[in-house]
């Protein structure tokens, strides 16, 4: 069993519990165990694009140095920290590239980290769990573990921005990605392509400019459903929240609108691999996926071990 140092990020502990629990469950099945970093802190969520603000870069570097310490205690661990949240992924990757290009910035940050008895030496790689699945496990390894192919589920992948942007953080080609597509196919689900696969959901505008988010979500969902999708697969807790919650509001407003459930890619994996349904935390979704899954015979009727 290869052990990875795993950085959860704040949301996986609050409203994306299903994401984390399913990821840990399937990672054990695939022999790539995710072990959480002890005493991690928030990475700052969004990366600062200013050239002169070092303060906003301290938190992610602290995460990297804590992860380095953590790796030393793990067995057979490659020098990599794994994230599930795509915003954490992008923030950590960008900052690690920045400090490796700029020794001066790193020295200043390390000076700030002295109080925590930490230093960072540019010696760790940041990976998204999808990259581990693609590069270390392989889609074949995943489909071998599938016990219940997701027949009848027509899934449209939605990447959001942070998995593909910017250059330093992308996990796949920014205009023609295929990692979620291949994953969905290896789980036996039907793939539905949508042109709005990285059409930004409005992100943090949900706090004070909800109208922006709702108009974005409407387009994203419409593009997917028009092509026959009955579910979306995402990798970002904020995309998931925005699309899920806005759909519920839209369904309330107009009777003609048909919402579709949102899945994290690890939830689909857990379903296909026959993990218990309760680790998905479907009750916390705004659009409950259970009726659809029952209709397709993917949960409920037959008991699987």
């Amino acid at each position: 069993m290869v052990q990875y140092s795993y950085f959860p990020g704040c949301n996986l502990k609050t409203n994306a519990k299903g994401f984390e629990e399913t990821a840990i469950a399937v990672s054990k099945k695939l022999n790539v165990e995710l072990v959480e970093i002890p005493n991690w802190n928030c990475c700052g969520t969004v990366h600062t694009m200013t050239s002169d603000n070092i303060m906003k870069r301290i938190a992610p570097v602290r995460v990297l140095s804590r992860s380095k310490k953590h790796i030393e205690t793990l067995e057979e661990s490659p020098n990599q920290v794994v994230t599930l949240c795509s915003m954490c992924n992008s923030t950590l990757k960008i900052v690690s590239k920045e400090v490796s290009d700029n020794q001066d910035t790193l020295d200043k940050i390390n000076y700030q980290l002295e109080d925590d008895e930490l230093t960072y030496e540019n010696d760790i790689e940041v990976k998204h769990f999808l990259e581990i699945l693609r590069d270390s496990v392989g889609y074949e390894g995943i489909s071998k573990k599938v016990v219940k192919p997701l027949k009848g589920l027509k899934v449209s992948p939605y990447y959001g921005c942070m998995l593909l942007h910017p250059e330093e953080a992308k996990i796949d080609d920014e205009e023609m990605p295929d990692v979620l597509e291949s994953l969905v196919e290896s789980l036996g689900a039907e793939l539905v392509m949508s042109p709005l696969f990285k059409y930004c959901c409005g992100s943090y505008h949900i706090v004070d400019q909800e109208n922006i988010v709702s108009s974005q979500v409407e387009k994203i969902v419409e593009a997917a459903t028009r092509r026959g999708a009955n579910a979306l697969v995402v990798a970002c807790p904020l995309c998931s929240y925005n699309i899920d919650q806005q759909q519920k509001a839209m369904a309330k407003e107009s009777a003609g609108f048909k919402p579709i459930p949102i899945f994290y890619f690890t939830q689909l994996m857990a379903l296909a691999m026959g993990e218990p349904v309760k680790i998905n935390h479907f009750k916390e979704h705004f659009i409950n996926p259970e009726p659809l899954l029952k209709e397709l015979g993917l949960i409920g009727r037959k008991k699987t071990k």
């Binding site: 990020g9 704040c10 949301n11 609050t14 409203n15 994306a16 928030c42 700052g44 969520t45 969004v46 600062t48 906003k56 949240c85 915003m87 992100s203 943090y204 505008h205 949900i206 706090v207 004070d208 807790p237 904020l238 929240y241």
Partner: peptide, 21 residues
């Protein structure tokens, strides 16, 4: 910000928003 908004929103939305605004 109303307490209701603060309670229901995911932390990444709040942290990102406050860092940007």
């Amino acid at each position: 910000l109303p307490k209701k908004v603060l309670e229901k929103l995911p932390n990444i939305a709040l942290v990102a928003n406050f860092r940007k605004k």
